[in-house]
Design a protein around this nucleic acid. Structure first.
Length: 921
RNA sequence: GCGGGCGUGUUGUAAUUGGUAGCCAAGCUAGACUUAGGAUCUAGUGCCGUAAGGCGUAAGGGUUCGAGUCCCUUCGCCCGCACCA
């Protein structure tokens, strides 16, 4: 009987759902294993074949782990707040909740068809008030905490107030904004508003003025990871730098812990490296330069990693946004500086980047004094210095920094080389190597010696100190949008107050329009009645990463309305053992989640410092587009191989009407009225399409829908094929060509149980040695491969095993029953069907992974290839039990050996156990 | 520019981690069977050569009895970051 996948899959999906087969318990004597997928944003386009790649892999691993005796947590949910639903709402007036609800239903339907073993009773949605209650709760905890650098952790703000009341803020070592020092008495004499303004500088979640990425087109601010090359990641709109008062999370306080925590994680090197770059630790020194605007004197602090080059400082540079600009602009230069600032301000981030090579700058009129040489150097202002890094001011050493060099050349500033023998006539010498010169007491040292020596010196003179700087900045946490979590914050006479925890969740109010208001306020400003005790509530909402930062914790205990996660659930599941998802979250979600988790750890709400123990990035599946070639000015299409004989236009054609690059002519005519009368010039009676690898998208007509594959070939074939396509981590184009291979394999396997007449044909005969060997080789290979996430080779191994068994004519229960268990992680539906045919009442979930018995695979003799001087000559059959010496003797006495010696002598014989013998002449 | 990775048949890929390169598929070529299907089965399929044999893992060099794998140089491709002082 034919393998009727449609019927089988429907039957078992229904069975699993009805029986809650994959429901997971929080108390079990089994060891736990937590397998997590990055939950999807339910977009309107539905899933394409690229999305399930990681889900299939994690499902295989989950099913495998269950068979291995683990209590597996494998949940799924939806990252359901976000911009697209809101933009759709603006266009259509449909509430984002409705669109989101519909999209989720579609996603669920598509996922169900693939046969995942999720525990759907644990589903979470970030837009559900019962869920975002805990996002808001975490925010309140951050609002109510500060970072104590001495304890190196976050602690409740009450401890800070206590400290202020005792000693003011002088003894407090906190990660905080700019605050003046004050005594206990001064603190006590402050008004509540003043005190709250001070505390705001210390909170982990705080509101502060900072330069932000403002996207006018989206009408919202964006975090650094949401901007790429000066454009918004969503939509690709220009982004500008703007000073604004925004909610922020003090992620920077965790920079060092986020960095050192990476060492213990089982992530790929490239991903760890990306996070290291993003955190951007650099070790150097802060130094104080005296600066003079006329006769006004100031102390200006700069950051440098090259303290050794201080003798080569020939000018200073300020970022245009730096506070020093105002202080150091002299009356004579005022006009020029203002013109420069205005021009800089007008540029979008994109333009600034595009002009990287073009140097701009203006002289402030002021001078600085080099603390070591006493030299007077001019202070300039230039865009190439960033306000947000270090102190927003630098000492410029044109001889040894390429950016300073270009600037010095442009404005004719002096260049003093500091390393013996270096040539700075054409370019700067940036390398940290060589012997110092022109550098006073540093002369004669290597650069590596000079750096610490210079810092020691400035530290001893009190003009500088060691300092570690991080690129990682605090995360901008507010968005001027509707479809996100509201802030549980209200403003009493302009001062921010937290709402009490028991008022959570603070639900999104209903509004009738989702656009920003005419006055540029966020959409929530339309909710006039929305107040807390008569005071206005914060109008912006939280960003996308808020809801996804702790969702893995919520799955552990999704129905708990007393806590984000109970202590028992947290201590049982601890953290995610295996996390599978895309690499695009490397510097966003994966940093924020780690931060969020560490914060909760500090306050004692979770027991693990790191949320994701092992992480695998599945590759992207690209589209494989097909083309037809229309002869210009006609409605005639020429097959790909003949297209060069004509003047043609290349047209994307829907890949769903193309099979193995052959166009379905009737379907093509029906595809669009334009082609109804199309004519074709064929090759061997067929129309062959051209192809190209592109991003999978609607406009390229190359989207392959998993539903269609499930309908045509079945979910099991889709699952096997997605794995068979290549290594999990590798990006690859989707090519339906080749899917027949795995489908044929499944049919072949199925036919081992049911003959053509549909009769069960499995016998209870004893298995032969050859059959047992095939089985146990597969068990060994599959275990090793799955543990190493090499799923493509597992599928191959399966095909080999089934080919071998078919050749042996094997239809024995002793072999086939374990085979069914082995295939079940990959092709669960057909496995369940065969399992029940074999007479089992319970599902395969209760079975256990077959034990590997090496005794069955041992060979008593082995064909050793024999090489002479590394060149393969012949093979010799030897008993496996022979020692190396005995094997060598056997080769020596073999008559073929003489043939290859040509009268020479054997120098040595190398025997590599079970592999090869090499004879050196 | 910096960082990470990759380069193997016509195509996707494999190689027990230094041990017979090309497994398993796709495609192609023959053939069998047929209810002519996108079914099933058999054989062949890296290159040169009738053959023995030789050559082959981007190119060149090195280490080794032995290199796709390790080291150096060059070329090419992909990804990430990018004025971070």
């Amino acid at each position: 009987m034919e393998y009727n996948f449609a019927q089988i899959e429907k039957k078992w999906q229904q069975y699993w759902a009805d029986n809650h087969t994959f429901q997971t318990n929080n108390d079990s004597s089994k060891p736990k294993y937590y397998v997590l997928d990055m939950f999807p944003y339910p977009s309107g386009a539905g899933l394409h074949v690229g999305h399930p790649l990681g889900y299939i892999a994690s499902d295989i691993y989950s099913r495998y782990k269950r068979l291995k005796g683990f209590n597996v947590l494998h949940p799924m949910g939806y990252d359901a707040f976000g911009l697209p639903a809101e933009q759709y709402a603006i266009q259509t007036g449909q509430h984002p909740a409705t669109t989101t609800e519909n999209n989720i239903a579609r996603y669920r339907q598509q996922m169900d068809k693939i046969g995942f073993s999720y525990d759907w009773d644990r589903e979470v949605r970030t837009c559900d008030p019962a869920y975002y209650k805990w996002t808001q709760w975490a925010f309140l905890k951050m609002f109510d905490s500060w970072y104590d650098k001495d304890l190196d952790k976050a602690v409740p703000i009450a401890t800070l107030i206590e400290a202020f009341e005792k000693n003011g803020n002088t003894a407090v070592n906190a990660a905080c904004g700019n605050v003046k020092t004050f005594t206990a008495d001064e603190w006590k004499s402050m008004s509540e508003t003043e005190q709250r303004a001070v505390l705001m500088q210390y909170r982990i979640a705080y509101q502060g003025e900072t330069t932000v990425n403002w996207c006018p087109k989206l009408g919202t601010v964006l975090a650094n990871d949401e901007v790429k090359e000066g454009l918004s990641v969503r939509g690709g709109f220009p982004v500008e730098q703007k000073k604004m008062k925004q909610w922020q999370l003090r992620v920077s306080a965790y920079a060092e812990r986020l960095l050192s925590g990476l060492d213990g994680l089982d992530w790929t090197d490239s991903l760890k490296e990306m996070q290291r770059n993003w955190i951007g630790r650099s070790q150097g020194a802060e130094m104080t330069f005296k600066v003079y605007n006329g006769d006004k004197e100031y102390d200006m602090v700069i950051f440098t990693t090259r303290a050794d080059t201080i003798f080569g400082v020939t000018f200073m540079v300020l970022a245009p946004e730096s506070d020093w600009v105002g202080k150091l602009t002299t009356p004579e230069q005022k006009e020029a500086v203002e013109a420069y600032l205005a021009a800089a301000k007008k540029k979008t981030e994109r333009e600034r980047i595009a002009e990287t090579r073009h140097v701009t700058g203006v002289f402030s009129g002021s001078y600085a004094v080099n603390p070591l040489t006493g030299d007077r150097v001019p202070v300039w202002i230039s865009e190439y210095v960033l306000a947000g890094y270090g102190t927003g001011a630098i000492m410029a050493v044109p001889a040894h920094d390429s950016r300073d060099y270009v600037f010095a050349r442009e404005f004719n500033l002096p260049i003093i080389p500091l390393i013996e023998g270096c040539d700075v006539s054409q370019e700067s010498f940036d390398a940290k190597e060589g012997i110092m010169c022109n550098s006073g007491f540093l002369n004669g040292m290597t650069v590596q010696q000079a750096i610490p020596a210079a810092i020691d010196y400035v530290e001893s003179k009190g003009i500088g100190k060691r300092k570690i700087n991080y690129r990682l900045r605090d995360a901008i946490f507010s968005r001027q949008r509707y479809w996100g979590e509201p802030f549980p914050i209200y403003f009493k006479e302009g001062t921010a107050y937290a709402m009490p925890e028991d008022k959570l969740p603070l639900e999104l109010p209903a509004i009738d329009e989702f656009k920003p208001t005419e006055t540029g306020e966020p959409p929530l400003a339309r909710a006039k009645e929305w107040t807390y005790e008569g005071w206005p509530i914060e109008k912006s909402t939280m960003p996308g990463f808020a809801g996804s930062s702790a969702y893995y914790l919520r799955y552990m205990d999704p129905k708990n309305d007393k806590a984000l996660v109970s202590r028992e659930a947290d201590e049982y599941w601890r953290n995610v053992d295996l996390y599978i998802g895309g690499t695009e979250h490397a510097t966003g979600h994966l940093i924020y989640s780690r931060f969020w988790n560490k914060f909760l750890y500090d306050l004692g709400y979770v027991c693990e410092q790191e949320p994701f123990r092992k992480l695998i990035n599945q590759g992207m599946i690209q589209g494989r587009s097909n083309f037809v070639y229309r002869i210009k000015g006609t409605n005639t299409f020429v097959s790909c191989g003949l297209k060069d004989n004509y003047d043609t236009t290349e047209i994307h054609v829907d890949v769903n009407i193309v099979h193995n690059d052959r166009l379905d002519l009737e379907a093509f005519k029906a595809w669009s009225p334009e082609y109804a009368t199309a004519e074709f010039i064929l090759e061997d009676g067929e129309y062959v399409c051209g192809y190209a690898v592109e991003k999978m998208s609607k406009s390229m007509y190359n989207v392959v829908n998993p539903d269609k594959i499930c309908a045509d070939y079945g979910a099991d074939t889709l699952r096997l094929y997605e794995m068979f396509l290549g290594p999990l981590e590798q990006s690859k184009p989707w090519d339906t060509k080749g899917i027949d291979g795995v489908h044929r394999f499944l049919r072949k396997f199925y036919r081992m149980f049911l003959n053509e007449a549909g009769e069960f044909c499995v016998s209870d005969e004893k298995a032969s040695a050859a059959e047992l060997k095939t089985l146990h080789k597969l068990i060994e290979k599959e275990s090793w491969d799955i543990e190493h996430f090499s799923f493509n080779t597992t599928v191959s191994a399966f095909m080999i095993a089934v080919n071998d068994l078919a050749a042996l004519g094997c239809n024995k229960r002793e072999i086939l029953e374990p085979m069914v268990i082995l295939i079940s992680p990959f092709a669960p539906h057909v496995a369940e069907e065969l399992w029940s045919l074999l007479g089992h009442k319970e599902t395969i979930t209760y079975a256990s992974f077959p034990e590997f018995n090496p005794a069955y695979t041992v060979e008593d003799s082995f064909e050793y290839p024999v090489s002479f001087n590394g060149k393969l000559r012949f093979k010799i059959t030897l008993a496996k039990s022979l020692s190396q010496q005995e094997a060598a003797d056997a080769v020596r006495s073999d008559e073929r050996t003489a043939k290859y010696l040509n009268g020479g002598t054997i120098k040595k014989i190398i025997v590599v156990p079970s592999k090869i013998i090499n004879v050196v002449c």
